[in-house]
Write a protein that binds this DNA or RNA. Structure first.
Lengths: 197, 197
DNA sequence: TTAATTTTGGCACAAATGTGTCAAGTAAAA
DNA sequence: TTTTACTTGACACATTTGTGCCAAAATTAA
């Protein structure tokens, strides 16, 4: 079995020990490992994902493109995280966002129907799903709340704290839209912080 | 069995028909129905919820209070929705947000441990949990994304569209912080929209 | 009913943010 | 190496948003 698949199965087992090795073994039969180069698109907006993916190594930016062609980053996918748009993937609808590799990336892919089948075949898979989605919900909730009652400066500081391993790999121009400000504003924030050190 | 509890069980069954009536019956044994008056607090920030609740009728605002005592609304809980802060409830941690009734409200309550017990006793409960959390995640995701790539004006229009039943029950001053703008700005948006009709 | 409170729209001014542009510096590609 | 592309900090200016205040209207409580 490929190393990447082992890593993925280990993640599942860590989250939900109730799943036994036999079930994981069966689940793994449909997994494939794929490598993407820097700047490759994992998903292009408008596309419906026929497969889901778990990022083993690399970094992916998830962005939205408006009518004028302006891009805004909504998420970054770090190592050991799922790389799909939950809402559209679960409903089998086109993704409103594009996924592009900022670095060479290795992904474990699985067909969407295989996930649904697993929910039916392996009762404890529902638990794994629940736990993962609960994690995601918490993250999402925190991020939303940070937009509602924190300043851009605080969000910037939080980002550095929360993703120290990403901070040096993402440029200012990529980061600013994730924080919800223009590049100029992020520059001002950094200047202000630098002065106050 | 009280009407409110029947309403709640019906909601569960609608979301997850795999749960049988016997299981629901057992689950219902720990449910209580409580009424709250307008302006009553369902949860005060800092409190750890020992029970979760499902709002049968009424309307609850969920808000954050900053160091200066300024309040900002983060969510509104409409009828037939859960009234707790997922992240803190699931981890049994103090809620960072306060829940206050904007209208007389009737809630079906259940002890937190009862939920966890149900996950162990009734295997299909995990599925119900997964489906609910998936729903929440989708809503949360949409809301976050609206902050990242939509204008306040668009968010206002979306709110009217998405919650027509709430629109007339929430004042401008309560709504503005939910949309992430000051009251004056929301007034300006409304003026602009009124002119363009 | 009257009195008290809350909500709303409006105004003026201050502060923050966005827009567009430029040049130096850095990194990547030929 | 040279060339190209991208990133960054800086500037000026326009626009948007926030703040504080007021008075009219609406709502709620006495």
């Amino acid at each position: 079995m490929k190393e990447e698949i082992k890593t993925y199965l280990k993640h599942i087992k860590d989250v939900c020990p109730e799943l036994n090795d036999n079930e994981l073994e069966k689940f793994s039969s449909e997994l494939t490992v794929e490598k993407y180069n820097k700047n490759d698109f994992y998903i292009t907006a408008g596309q419906t994902q026929t497969q889901g993916g778990f990022l083993i190594s690399g970094l992916i930016r998830v962005f939205h493109t408006d009518e004028l062609g302006n891009e805004k980053n909504i998420y970054f996918v770090p190592e050991n995280d799922y790389t799909f748009h939950y809402a559209s993937f679960m409903d089998n609808k086109p993704s409103p966002l594009s996924f592009q590799c900022l670095e060479t990336s290795v992904v474990v892919n699985f067909p969407a129907f295989h996930l649904h089948k697993s929910y039916e075949e392996f009762p404890k898979f529902d638990r794994y799903g629940r736990l993962i989605v609960e994690q995601k919900l918490k993250q999402q909730q925190e991020r939303l709340e940070s937009f509602l009652f924190q300043s851009a400066e605080q969000r910037y500081l939080d980002f550095i704290n929360q993703f120290p391993q990403l901070f040096n790999r993402i440029s200012i121009s990529q980061l600013c839209s994730y924080l919800g400000v223009e590049r100029q504003t992020l520059t001002r924030i950094r200047q202000k912080l630098a002065r106050s050190v």
